[in-house]
Amino acid sequence: MTTALITGASGGIGEAFARELAARQTNLVLVARSVEKLNQLAQELQQQYKIQVDVIVKDLTEPDAAATVFDATKTQGLTIDILINNAGFGDYGDFAESDRTRQIKIVQLNVLALVDLTHHFLPLMRQRRSGSIINVASIAAFQPIPYLSVYAASKAFAVSFSEALWAENRQYGIRVLVACPGPTETNFFTEANFPPALAQTTNTVMSSQEVVRESLTALEQWEPNVIISDTGTHLRSAVAKLVPRKILLTLLAKHFKVGAGL
């Protein structure tokens, strides 16, 4: 059976990936910080789908976290056929006034952990000449976002990195996809300290299940990138590329500052 490793698997899009892949009879390795949530999900999926579910409790912002996860899979004799780098978070606010440690942790999780895990598992996929990688980015990747500066920049990195790997690795039979969902039903806004008034101005919210299904369909079609959102968001993203940078940044800063009542 195929085995998928999913980071950030204790909730949101990560949990939705776990449930969808379990229903497709895929064995799972679930990675997150919350041992209670992971064990509960693992037990439920094992009982319902009769699959193997392993749990690795790890904070991926810690030094050498990716190596620890990789070594755990080796120790357990697991072959990872699908790597889903889903773990990530953001933080709303003026960068100069933000908590330094929190901003660094965003980079450590959204960028460094993604790169490190990919570098551990991709060479083995090349040796087998098969495998899949899904990196979860965001619609925020396609323009700088004032007051979400580090988060948006980290997701822009994920898009550029993933698309380059798609080109490098398809000759080895390896699929690489970067999924870019719009606003999704997760705890993102709460964890990012988003002002409620600003969160309410977001566009149509997708379900985590929709994000997962569209991502897996795009992966099957060998797409390098999939934007998962409503038509209006697609259109705004396309128009943003045509707007002069000064105007775009001024409009974005006004929206994210005024919308929050700052």
Rank of each mutant, 00 (worst) to 15 (best):
G173N: 14
L198H: 01
T202R: 11
F157S: 01
P195I: 03
A167K: 15
V159W: 02
G182P: 07
E191H: 07
P195L: 07
E185H: 14
P181T: 08
T186C: 07
N193G: 14
Q171W: 07
L198N: 02
P181A: 08
L165N: 14
G173V: 08
E191P: 02
Q171N: 12
R175T: 11
N203V: 02
A179Q: 06
G173E: 12
N187I: 03
T190F: 09
A167R: 15
A197G: 00
A197H: 00
E168P: 08
L165A: 10
A192V: 10
A179W: 07
Q200V: 00
F161C: 01
N203E: 12
L165V: 05
E191V: 09
W166I: 00
A199T: 03
A158C: 14
P183M: 13
R175V: 06
F188D: 07
T204A: 12
A197Q: 06
A156T: 12
S162A: 15
A192L: 08
V176G: 02
A199D: 02
P195N: 06
L177R: 12
N187G: 08
F194Q: 04
F157N: 05
E185N: 11
F189L: 11
N187Q: 11
F189E: 11
E168M: 04
T204V: 12
F188Y: 12
E163D: 11
W166H: 15
A199G: 15
T186K: 05
A199N: 04
S160D: 05
V178R: 00
L165Q: 13
N187H: 10
S162F: 05
R170Q: 13
A167V: 14
V176R: 02
F157D: 04
N193Y: 12
T204I: 07
A156Q: 11
L177I: 12
T186I: 03
A167F: 10
T184G: 04
N203A: 09
F161G: 00
W166E: 06
N169C: 05
I174V: 14
A156C: 08
A192M: 07
N187A: 11
A158N: 15
T204G: 04
E168D: 14
F189H: 07
A158Q: 15
P196G: 01
A156G: 15
L165D: 13
Y172K: 03
N193W: 10
Q171M: 11
T202D: 08
V159H: 02
G173K: 10
Y172F: 15
F157A: 01
A158I: 12
T184L: 10
L177H: 12
